[in-house]
Each structure stands twice: as structure tokens, then as C-alpha cells.
Design a protein around this nucleic acid. Structure first.
Lengths: 342, 342
DNA sequence: GCTAAATTTGTAAGCGCTTACACTCTTCTT
DNA sequence: AAGAAGAGTGTAAGCGCTTACAAATTTAGC
């Protein structure tokens, strides 16, 4: 019951027989600390289980030892995977991971990004997962003093890792085209009220380009905003069939959307590939089971990679070097939800 | 780039003509502040755009303003749902959420729980999700000074919310029994190398009790450790069919395990309910789609409820009141993966 | 060997806030 | 109408850390 009294830098100083100042420097690996002092401090610190108070450290001008992961939602498959992978990297580097879910709610997003100073008091860096930022938000972030890295973003002044979404969509669409389908629908983009997702635009562009290369035009009636959730896919698909028309094949912006679409089909007594061919992006764990053709992307790798970039940025002092964008490979996986048009 | 100099409580005090102490109290709605003072402070604060430094107030107040969520893994459906719901509650109460994933790895778990003092320095409370704790860990946690609440745990000296796992398993198994199946297998328990999951035991017990009530015995060959992942379910099901024998019906410890089992069936050219009936627990989003019968449980509610309990415990001063256990309802959902034995 | 320079260590002053405690005014008592 | 009780406010001492700057120590230079 007795609350363990906080172990302070004082305790470490006392145990090691040095001043708190020296301890502070030793712990942070600053120069001008003798080897013996360094050892004594390290010893005492581990013996006491000392970890600096992030509040005190930050207040005095230091770092907090934690980073934030900001995700549009924590429940979607992609984000859960990426978050877990990134958290592992952070934990192994001694950082605490603060999770911030935007809950697919624009108002939450603007609240978070309008108060970046407050965030900067609690974390040293931020890992952004597929957040569609306004110009103002990007600027605010860049000048917040926070280290930043991201997954799945574009034209941002910090390191990013992702896949070539435009190309992945192009490949997926081309697959449909190759199978003889030319009357294509796309289930992508954001749902009304949902925060926008940055990858959606790219995927739509890839879809358009694939069609354009075949001199086909995109029927606006077949472009559906479906978000990237099962529910969104289901809703969009139902709407498509009931109020627009059935295409020959469908490109779904992600596998979960495709799942929703498959559900909608089933509800209407239809199925893929019998009534329509369908392909997604992700290679979700369930996709094999459902026989969903898809463009596979490495999700955990993206999260871990970006997390490592963030940590590097945190450790590298001075102004940021030129931001780099790393693209990981995708791969077409043909399954039975797509087949040649007859 | 030039960061605006921080507006401090001093500035507000100066502008309002009051002392920083009064300002501090007024801003936090403490008693003993006159109406006029309150107004003057509020005025000055908005005029200056003052935002308290969380680092400073945390340091001075002795709290960290954050809570940790500890989950066996962040990727499983159940945990992703619960984490998101809890995070929302915490965020709305002004707490930062530190995510700690045990990655289904015992060594990570023991590392985390052996260093509770360090954890206590960084967060005010901990929300445990289905963690199987040793007696020592429970004790350490109880005397760490941390506020604690949990989801899906048993006999713990803090507030817990969950479902009646034994009963849910009993209901699910009874459903199978009612359909005339008497040769039942269970896919539950933990996979080798995985951290144990506390609910697994209860579910196994419920399964046993249901059989016992019908004077049936449990065939040890049909009790499989499957963990609670898709992969685990798949592996266990394959093992069951290939090296043991095919039962008449299967109770899967959770829906994801059931999905895995369904996959394994398909790989072998079999399917449910044709070759075997199968029921899970959860009512995962995909279960409807796959026609999986299941015992539905409210997941987000459990996370949110427990999060609220934790916050209450954080705010209620003094020693903890008697720990309460709250059980939420489950409901049988019959779908087509289960049918009457012929 | 003795001073100048470099290296290591300690002192003390905050960072911006909370909070005992002391102090001033108002209100009630009787 | 004098003293007790209470309300409102201010003073000052930290919270645990970083960081000039000063002090002490070692090393180098000639």
C-alpha cells in the first residue's frame, strides 16, 4: 500500500557519491564525464531502478522519453498491425508509447493538432499513421519542435515510409483489366464525416491511370466513397448495386472494404467472382480464407521502419536532414474473387 | 520558426492583478475563489491564450497525467476494440494513454511486471486487459501505489469488468449439445510459448460443466490448445483432424480461433456445418459474414467501463474501496455454422 | 617543476506550476 | 460591539530535472 517513494536523481547521486549534475550528464551520455563516474552512475541507477521523471525533465528543458503514435483509428486491421510493430521498436529503445486515436473524427483531429504545444510537452516525437493533414497542420508540426515520422503520407517535410499506393492501385486495376473487365467500379475514398485518408487519393489516381492507359473512361457513378472499414465497404456496395448499377469488376481500396462489399453481395444473394470480380489491397489475414485477390503490402514492416526513423531523428541532433521517403514493395496475389470476364 | 515565448501563469497573474496562486486555483475551479477573481482570471487567460504547461503541473502536482493499458497483444480483434474504447475514455478525461503490448511473450510480461516501480513513475494507473498474472505480480501491483482496473480477470484486488466466461462457454457448449452433438472438441487455452490467457481456463470449465451435466465425459484427445489467434485456431484444427479425430462439433474459445478452424477445414476440403458444427465466442465483425454461430460479448463496453473505473479510482482519494467485479451480458447468436446432428 | 590549458565535477538558479500556511477582510455569534 | 469563524488572497517552498558558471582537478607545455 505504501506508495513507493519516487526514486529521484538525488538518490542516484547519493548512492554513486556524485553530484546530481554529474549524474544527469552521465545518464544522458553527455561529454565531460569520466569513465569511472559513468560506471558508478550507471550502477547506482540500475540498482535503484531509476528512470527520470518525464515531466521534470521536460520542464527543465530536456526530453520526455516518450513518443506518440497518432492513428485515424486503432481498430482497423492496418493500424493495429502497424501500432504493435512500432510499439515494439519504441519499447526496445526505452521509449514509452502514447497512443492517440483520432477515432475517424475530424473534430478530434483538429483538437489534437491545434494543441501541438501541449503535445510537445509530453512527448519527444510523433509517428503519424496515414493522417490526412492540412497545410496548416503540417506547418505547425514542422515548427513544433517535435520529431516526426510517418507511414503512408505524401509530400511531408519529414521521413515517411509507405508503399506506392498509386502503383498498387494501378496494378490491382490492371489485373482486372487483364481479365477482360472494362466496366470497373472503385470503392475507396472516405466516408462522409470521417477524417480523410491520404492514401485514398493515390489509389483513386492509380485506378484512373490504369483505365486511361486502356483508353477507358471512369464512370462517375461507379466511384464510391467507402472509407476503409468493413461497414463502409458494405454500405458503399449496397448503394452501388441498389441505386447505381452493377459493374463488371470492383477495385476496393483495402481488403476490409472488400470484405464489406462481399458481405453486401451475399446479402443480396450475389457473390464474387460469379456476379462481379473484386480485388483489394492489404492481404489481410482473412483474405486468403475468403479467396480475395489483393495487392499484398508489408504492414508491420512499415510501422517498424517508420518507428526506427523516428528514433533516429530523435537521436540525431541539429536540424533535420532532407526528409526521405521509403517505399516498400507490394505484390499481386491472385485468388478466386477475380476471374476472366465471360 | 521562432517559437513564441510561452505564456505562463505569471503573465495571467500580472494581467489580472492577482497572485499566481489565486490564478492557479481559479483556473482549476478550486473553492475559495471569489466570483470577481474568477472572472478576472478567466478574462486574462483567454486574452493571453494561456494554456497551463502540463509538464509543470504534473511535476508540481505529483501526478503524471497518464495511464497505461497493458494488453497481451495489440493486434487481436478483442484487444484492438477494447484499447480504442478505453483510449477514448482516457483522452476525454485528459489522460494520456501509454500502450504496452506484451506481444504474447512471457519474457516481456515478466520484464514489465518486475519493474513496476519504474512504471509507477511514469503513469498514475494501469488498465489490464486479460493478463494472466502470477500471485507475485498481483501483489506487486497492489502495493505499487498504482491505481489498477482490469478487463476479463478474476480474483484480483481491484475493480474488474468482464463477462461470465464460464457461463458463456457453458451456453455455447449447451447449444451444441441441444443440437444433438455429444462428441465435442474444444479449441481454447494457450499456445505453447504464448503468455497464458486468463479467460481460457474459465471457458474450458464451462465446456466441461456443460458436458458433465449431460453425463458426458471430455475426451482429452479433443481438448486442443489453440491460443486465441486465427493462426492458432488453424494449427489446432489441422492437428486435431490429422492426428486425433474429427469430433461432431467444436467449441472455439473465441471467434478468431473459429476462423482459423474454418480455414483449416477448407484446406482439407471440409466445411462447417457439413462435416462439423462450430461455435465461437465474441461476435467478431466477420462472424456474420462467415455464418459463424457465437456467443456475442460487448467488447468496447468492457474497455470503456473498465477505463471509467480506473479513472474513478484515480480521483477517489484514500485507500481503495472493496474491489468490485462487473459482469456484462452475453448472448447466443445462432448462425449457420452449427446445425442439428443427423 | 611551474604555469597555462583542458578536463571533470559541483553549485545554484531556474523551468512553470501546486500547495501548505500565513494573512487580511468579511460575516456571524452572544 | 468584541471576538470567533470563515472566506478570499498572497507568500514562499518545493516538485525533479537541466544548465550556465564557478571550482577543483588533471594534463600538457616548455
Amino acid at each position: 500500500m505504501a506508495r513507493a517513494p519516487r526514486v529521484t536523481i538525488q538518490d542516484v547521486a547519493a548512492l554513486s557519491g556524485l553530484s546530481i549534475c554529474t549524474v544527469s550528464r552521465a545518464l544522458r551520455g553527455l561529454p565531460n564525464v569520466s569513465g569511472t563516474a559513468h560506471l558508478k552512475v550507471a550502477d547506482a541507477a540500475t540498482k535503484l531502478g531509476y528512470k527520470a521523471s518525464s515531466a521534470a525533465s521536460r520542464l527543465a528543458g530536456g526530453t520526455t522519453g516518450s513518443v506518440a503514435i497518432i492513428a485515424p483509428t486503432a481498430t482497423a486491421w492496418f493500424f493495429a498491425q502497424a501500432v504493435e510493430a512500432a510499439e515494439e521498436v519504441f519499447a526496445d529503445s526505452g521509449f514509452d508509447t502514447v497512443l492517440i486515436s483520432l477515432r475517424n473524427t475530424p473534430s478530434v483531429q483538429s483538437r489534437v493538432f491545434s494543441d501541438l504545444d501541449a503535445l510537445a510537452q509530453r512527448v519527444d516525437g510523433v509517428l503519424l499513421l496515414n493522417i490526412a493533414l492540412t497545410g496548416g497542420e503540417i506547418e505547425a508540426l514542422a515548427s513544433s519542435g517535435l520529431a516526426v515520422a510517418s507511414v503512408g503520407m505524401h509530400n511531408v517535410p519529414w521521413d515517411n515510409v509507405g508503399i506506392d499506393n498509386e502503383d498498387a492501385a494501378f496494378q490491382a486495376t490492371s489485373h482486372l483489366l487483364c481479365l477482360g473487365h472494362w466496366d470497373l467500379a472503385i470503392l475507396s475514398g472516405r466516408e462522409p464525416g470521417e477524417g480523410s485518408v491520404v492514401t485514398a487519393t493515390d489509389r483513386l489516381n492509380g485506378f484512373r491511370r490504369a483505365l486511361a492507359e486502356q483508353h477507358l473512361t471512369v464512370d462517375p457513378d461507379l466511384v464510391m466513397d467507402a472509407g476503409s472499414s468493413i461497414e463502409g465497404g458494405r454500405r458503399a456496395m449496397t448503394e452501388l448495386i441498389e441505386n447505381r448499377r452493377m459493374p463488371s469488376a470492383i477495385f476496393a481500396g483495402c481488403d476490409e472494404t472488400a470484405f464489406g462489399a462481399l458481405m453486401a453481395l451475399r446479402e443480396l444473394g450475389l457473390s464474387a467472382p460469379k456476379n462481379v470480380s473484386i480485388i483489394g489491397i492489404d492481404d489481410h489475414q482473412m483474405s486468403w480464407f475468403l479467396g480475395l485477390s489483393t495487392m499484398a503490402q508489408p504492414v508491420a514492416d512499415q510501422g517498424a521502419f517508420a518507428a526506427n526513423l523516428l528514433i533516429e531523428g530523435l537521436q540525431r541532433p541539429g536540424p533535420l536532414s532532407a526528409p526521405a521517403s521509403h517505399l516498400l514493395d507490394t505484390k499481386l496475389i491472385e485468388r478466386k474473387s477475380t476471374r476472366r470476364k465471360r
